[in-house]
């Protein structure tokens, strides 16, 4: 089906082209100067991988990287479990209290991240917990549940309730229907939202900034403190690696439903652009 109108609006197309240039200009600059052989951020003097070598030899940066990967993995797994349970419960429960719960659980999505960060900081210190990677992980799980819930609910809503009834009809208890039919059908959405959360948590700065201890720090917090001391090509290298890694995860998250031959992609769920 073609949604093409005969004439291209010159203004809109121009804005779009400029927009894409603006969108990618800083990213291209970061990547380019990460391969600069000298410390200058203004002129490219020659190709070199010395900043990457520096990065891989900096054991404290590597520790931060490992910490961030660990946090992201645990947070993705935790929020996937909790968020899916929430999505299933909210989508099927019919009571008024169920809807109220639904509203409360989406609060983290509309709360500015700094508020969540401050609240988490007070919560953990109030409980007498020592700030560490554990507190970061707990905070990230809490923040990420809503993302999983939104994506999984979107997929559930597009699933006919008759599918679940068919499972019951063919001999499943409610729980067996969930395990044998609903969850397998949700696999692409689960993978997609898991990858998305992994990327979001891996990159997250604000929440980690408020809830982390002194050492080891998650990678974004570590980078933030170096940025405050000034721009350096080494940060360009780390930044390039982080951008590439997140981009890879997001592209995967977007492509997952395609790999399963599903018509609805994660992108549709994010963009809400699913065609009727």
């Amino acid at each position: 089906m073609s949604r093409r109108l005969e004439r291209r609006p010159a203004f809109a197309v121009t804005v779009t082209v400029v927009f894409f240039a603006w969108l990618y200009l800083p990213i291209v600059a970061v990547v380019l100067f990460s391969f600069n052989s000298v410390k200058s951020l203004a002129t490219f003097q020659g190709f070199s991988t010395r900043w990457y070598v520096d990065f891989f030899h900096d054991s404290s940066l590597i520790t931060s990287l490992t910490a961030s990967l660990g946090i992201a993995a645990v947070a993705a797994a935790g929020s996937l479990i909790l968020g899916t349970m929430l999505a299933l419960g909210l989508e099927r429960i019919r009571s008024r209290s169920g809807r109220a719960i639904g509203a409360v659980t989406l609060l983290p999505l509309v709360t500015p991240e700094i508020v969540t960060g401050v609240a988490a900081l007070l919560f953990f210190t109030g409980l007498g917990m020592k700030l560490s990677l554990v507190t970061v992980t707990l905070a990230e799980i809490t923040f990420s549940i809503a993302y999983v819930t939104v994506i999984v609910r979107g997929r559930l809503a597009s699933m006919s309730p008759e599918v679940e009834e068919a499972a019951r009809d063919l001999g499943c208890t409610p729980w067996q229907a969930v395990r044998q039919v609903i969850l397998p059908t949700l696999v692409p959405a689960l993978l997609g939202s898991g990858l998305l959360v992994f990327a979001l948590v891996f990159d997250d700065f604000v929440l980690a900034f408020f809830t982390t201890g002194v050492d080891p720090q998650p990678l974004p917090v570590r980078i933030y403190s170096s940025i405050r001391f000034g721009v350096s090509p080494a940060i360009n290298a780390v930044g390039t690696l982080m951008l590439a890694f997140s981009a890879l995860l997001i592209v995967l998250a977007l492509l997952v439903p395609r790999l399963f031959h599903r018509k609805t992609s994660t992108l549709d769920l994010i963009a809400g652009g699913e065609r009727p």
Partner: peptide, 16 residues
């Protein structure tokens, strides 16, 4: 439903 000796053909087919 899972213990009733009836089966259903659904309007949307509801295939897995």
């Amino acid at each position: 439903p899972q213990k009733r000796d009836v089966n259903t053909v659904f309007q949307s087919y509801a295939l897995f």
